[in-house]
Design a protein around this nucleic acid. Sequence first.
DNA 1: TCCTATGTTGTATG
DNA 2: ACATACAACATAGG
Length: 295
Amino acid sequence: MPELAEVEHFRRRWAVAVGERIRTVSVHRNARVFRACDVAALVEDLPGRRLLSSEAAGKQMLFGFSGGAWLGIHLGMTGSLEFVNPDATATATATDTATATAPAPAPADRHDHLVLETPSGRLVFRDPRLFGRIRFDRGRGAPAWWLAIPPPLTSDEFMLADLGTFLDRRAKSPLKAVLLMQERFPGVGNWMADEILWRAELHPARQAGSLDLPERRRLYRWLRWVCRESMRVVAPSFADPPASWLFRHRWSDGGLCPRTGHALVRETIGGRTTCWSPGRQPSPRKLVKKSTSRG
DNA sequence: TCCTATGTTGTATG
DNA sequence: ACATACAACATAGG
């Protein structure tokens, strides 16, 4: 599920516990999501600390704790965050074990790899497919990997020239693959890339370096628009975008373009299933053909 | 049984 | 060193 706005939505789910103290930490310590994480440090360090802050940047999240501890979360393909209020019966039993010194048991659900218990509930990280990633860092300021994430695509720091530079550096790659590169387009994922290219009327297989200036302007404009609008529409409630978006038609075979009414096409481009509207997004082959005249 | 899946990364090749 | 392409990761559901 998680691209830019969905990640922001999950961040907000955990943010309800900002200010609360972590009472216990339970983990599936051998889960792949901890491959870049010192699990022992996390489990020993976090209890007693207070959750102070939460941020999302692209598909990454960072939760800050009192005393200089940082929990980084990437949701991979199937990760999610949830805050679970204990029901009345569960509260009694959970409270009784709170003072116990024995290590916290592993979470009951096999896909819940990290659970932070607070006085009012449980912060749950779930990820069936295990492509997600948990990081734990200590220090006064945010960790280096976090600071290296480029600025939001909706901000003034991301300019047309930045887009142009990157397109030229990846000149031979299809636009679809280029838009998925997080080092330049943090938060853009498979459905967002298709949505952007569809709105910009650019075929996903076009080589990045082949775009003229008007096309670059279009890409820039709709890239920012999709980021802004998805944040506005999706982040608060996890709502689907309106039916006027490609999003609502791209998932299965037989979908129709909401602009042209003609059949959408689905094909693998840049290693990912890609959906586009042939009547709206002219193929690279056709574009090449138009320059046949020679003086 | 086979195919697909809203993501990243390691590795091979040019 | 850089750019590009793709298999691999692990699980669930159609």
